[in-house]
């Protein structure tokens, strides 16, 4: 009897966790998104108080509306920010995949005693602050930075390249920062894969390349999907990288949100932006969950 009760309690813990740390904050942000901007502290209205009577609260509730969302829809800036964010995140994810897959493949095929070292080298950058690592790229990419100096010295270019403060720098920053998130899940699926599957495919008439596509690449799909999602989702909302490496022309929703919140002190519009961003990101997550379930079923 007591056991049954404790079992139930144990199951409840994650639910409480989700309730307090996800659902409640979500509702608070939603409620701000539905409020009106007002100059004061905090800068939105209406304010609720538990001492208000039911009449007052219901009257205040009726003042919540979708005005901020309508405002977002009416201003091209926001729509462009979203589209530009999705575009930058998408291109970065593809680039990260193109670099990350061969890296993960090489690691998974490396001699077994070498693998922990290689794995360590992928994880090592995490030991330094993300902010500092992104900041370091300014020194590399700027007009008189290391990269330009090196290329000029090599004689590959005659004039320094303009990379910093363009979208190129943002791509480089995102690919660099999120590469481990792509490499690790792909590595773990490839490492588990039985090498004799590739040999079997070759034995049954596949060239090396055909065997790679039909077996290795196919069985790595769950890892590739996980990696792409781990890169794509945070990249869409990325703020630090476009702020430090991007220029005035770099439009990303994370930056726009920051400006609304801190520069304009418009909490309500900033919250609405966050809500829309959440909805935009839920779609690929749900799609991924389905794809993952199918792939697990197929690849077991």
């Amino acid at each position: 009897m007591l056991r049954a009760v404790t079992n139930r309690l144990v199951i409840l813990i994650p639910y409480f966790w989700l309730l307090f740390f996800f659902l409640l904050p979500f509702l608070i942000v939603l409620r701000i998104a539905l409020s009106d901007l007002e100059y004061g502290q905090p800068p939105y209205a209406p304010q609720f108080s538990f001492s208000d009577g039911w009449e007052v609260i219901s009257e205040k509730l009726s003042r919540l509306d979708f005005e901020n969302f309508a405002f977002l829809a009416g201003d091209k800036l926001y729509i462009n920010s979203y589209l530009s964010s999705l575009y930058i995140a998408f291109v970065s994810t593809i680039l990260t995949l193109l670099i990350g897959f061969p890296l993960a493949y090489g690691m998974a095929r490396a001699p077994e005693n070498l693998r922990p070292i290689l794995l360590m080298m992928v994880i090592l950058p995490f030991w330094t602050s993300f902010l500092i690592r992104v900041y370091a790229w300014i020194g590399i990419l700027k007009r008189e930075g290391l990269l330009n100096q090196f290329l000029l010295w090599l004689g590959v270019i005659d004039a320094p390249l303009e990379i910093l403060s363009t979208n190129k720098a943002v791509f480089i920053g995102i690919v660099y920062s999120y590469l481990p998130f792509m490499v690790l899940p792909i590595y773990s699926t490839l490492e588990k894969m039985d090498e004799s599957l590739v040999e079997a495919a070759r034995d049954l008439g596949c060239t090396r390349i055909a065997a790679f596509w039909k077996v290795t690449a196919r069985l790595a799909v769950p890892g590739v999907l996980a990696g792409c999602l781990l890169v794509f989702i945070p990249a869409v909302g990325e703020f630090v990288i476009p702020d430090l490496l991007g220029g005035s022309g770099t439009l990303m929703i994370g930056k726009t949100l920051w400006i609304e919140f801190f520069n304009n002190s418009d909490w309500t519009v900033a919250s609405a932006i966050a809500m829309i961003l959440l909805i935009v990101l839920v779609v690929p997550i749900v799609w991924f969950q389905n794809a993952q379930a199918r792939a697990t079923e197929a690849g077991r």
Binding site: S196, L197, D203, L204, G299
Partner: peptide, 20 residues
């Protein structure tokens, strides 16, 4: 002669069945 061009087939110890 590469494996795919040999008139030889192999049955693997692990069976190596394609799981997908």
């Amino acid at each position: 002669v590469p494996p795919h061009k040999r008139p030889v087939n192999m049955m693997f110890q692990s069976y190596a069945l394609f799981p997908h």
